[in-house]
């Protein structure tokens, strides 16, 4: 492992409230999994070996990019651009859609204020 896992940051990004003990436990377990996952870095595709595909670095300017847009993602069985006409079709009724909402009011799902100051 190169960096110590910032479990506070990860738990916050994941929207998970963890106790101190849980943070320690998960941090350790995740470290083990990431150690295994690291081996992916040893892999070189033919394009990577010949230098025509770089992951994460713009060699010309020496800037580290965290956005490798050349890498193909998500085309599994050849289906791409599966779009339909922009027409209204059948959909859930409002009642059905609210069926399982923990809090609702006036036909809306009720949610705490995002920017509320005093809660």
């Amino acid at each position: 492992m190169n960096d110590k896992l910032d479990i506070e940051h990860i738990a916050k990004l994941s929207r998970l409230d963890l106790s101190k003990e849980e943070k320690e436990k998960y941090s350790k377990q995740m470290g083990g999994v990431l150690e295994y996952a690291e081996k992916i870095g040893d892999f070189r595709s033919p394009e990577q070996s010949e230098g025509s595909l770089h992951v994460g670095r713009d060699d010309k300017e020496g800037i580290s990019r965290d956005d490798t847009s050349d890498v193909e993602v998500g085309v599994i069985n050849g289906v791409t651009d599966a779009i339909r006409e922009d027409e209204v079709g059948e959909s859930l009724s409002r009642q059905e859609a609210l069926k399982n909402a923990p809090a609702q009011k006036d036909g809306f799902i009720q949610v705490k204020g995002v920017f509320a100051e005093d809660e």
């Binding site: 896992l5 479990i7 990860i10 738990a11 990004l13 994941s14 998970l16 963890l18 998960y26 377990q29 995740m30 999994v33 990431l34 996952a37 992916i40 870095g41 892999f43 595709s45 990577q48 595909l53 992951v55 994460g56 990019r65 965290d66 956005d67 490798t68 890498v71 193909e72 993602v73």
Partner: peptide, 29 residues
């Protein structure tokens, strides 16, 4: 919880290329 956090980590800024995009390259191969 473990998998959510691991997924968040390997796609987060600073790590996405090393893990997620690299995995996509492996997938194509």
């Amino acid at each position: 919880k473990r998998r959510i956090m691991l997924g968040t980590y390997v796609s987060s800024a600073g790590y996405a290329d090393k893990y997620y995009h690299q995995a996509q390259i492996v997938r194509q191969e």
